[in-house]
Structure formats: C-alpha cells, structure tokens
Amino acid sequence: MAPESLGQIFLAAVLANNFVLAMFLGLCPFLGVSARLDTAFPMGIATTFVMLVASLCAFGLNLLLTMFQLEFLRLISYIVVIASAVQLVEMFLKKTSPALFRALGIYLPLITTNCAVLGVALFQTAREYSFAQAMVFSFGGGAGFTLALVLMASVRERLQLSSVPGVAQGTALSLMLAGLLSMAFMGFAGLGG
C-alpha cells in the first residue's frame, strides 16, 4: 500500500499533478469541449462520474484478476468496464437532460477514449492504492479535470471578443493558452508530494 495520506493524494491529483495540464491526459475533450463554459462544466462532471465508477470497478477487477493470476487481461477488462460506464452515463443524460446530451454531442461517447479515465484506473493499479486512496485519487483527478476545463473555457470565452491574428486562430491559440495555464499550474509542483 502506498504511504501517502488521503489529503496529499487529493491535492496532488487536483493541482500539482493535474491530469490535463501536468500529465497530458484527456486532451481531446479538453480542446474540443472547452469553447463554451456551459458545456465545459457538465462535461467535467460527467467525466468525473465516469472516473469514479471506473476506478471502483477497476479496483474490484484488479483484485479478481490478481487472484486468478490473469494480469495480462487487465487492460482489456478495464476498457470494457469503462465503455459500459460511459454507456450508463449516456443513457442517464439522454433521459434527464436531452439539451445537454445534444450539446455534448460526439464528445460524450468519446469519454470512453478519454485517457484520463483509463489513466486513473492504470495509475491506481500501478501505485497500489488502497480502496479509499483509489476513490480519493479518482475524485481528485475528476475535480482537476473539471477545474482545467472550466478555466480554459472561461479564458476562451473572453478571447472570442478580442481580435487575434488570423494565423493563430483555432487550435494553435488554444494550445498556447493551455501552455500558459500549464505553466501557472507548475507553481503547485511539490504540493501534496
């Protein structure tokens, strides 16, 4: 079991090792959905939920696979679990909030291929977190992802009002912005260990 305390793990996952800005996980939705604040936030929440479910299932699965010495199936079983969790969220959103469902569009099923989700499952296995640690880690990761998404979306909403040189418009500008945000997050390095 890893020695870090729960608070340390949470802080590290949200700030110092922010999934998007320090570990480069989940960049596709980060660049894709962060154009507007009102889609960015729900997307972050949905991803956080999937992360929690995935982390929970991955923990159980890992116990089972280790018991039967089937570690080589780990990756395949994780990804299947994540795909089902995403399906669940998708059905839930479609029933409760069709408008949001349409706004998120293709990016909702793409949570399956969000590396942040699989990353949580893989990292918690590699670091041998206990159950509580794994839960805190995945929640922190999700919160960090949401934070990065919301920050980015707010900046980009502002940017729509300013005049940007034509060459820099689009992805290049978003990447530069992400670089600056990431540099700001570097200031948290060392926090939470």
Partner: peptide
C-alpha cells in the same frame, strides 16, 4: 528547462501549428 516540462509540450505544438497555418495561408 521549461521545454521539457509540460508547458513546453503545449507551446511547441502550438508553434508547429502556427507554422503550418502560416504556410497554408
């Protein structure tokens, strides 16, 4: 040093994209 740290990745890729969009233009 910042180039091998995470921000460098974003910035270098942004730079390449700038170059490509300038060429396209």
């Amino acid at each position: 040093v910042v180039m091998v740290l995470p921000p460098g990745g974003f910035i270098v890729l942004g730079g390449w994209l700038l170059l490509f969009s300038a060429l396209k233009r």
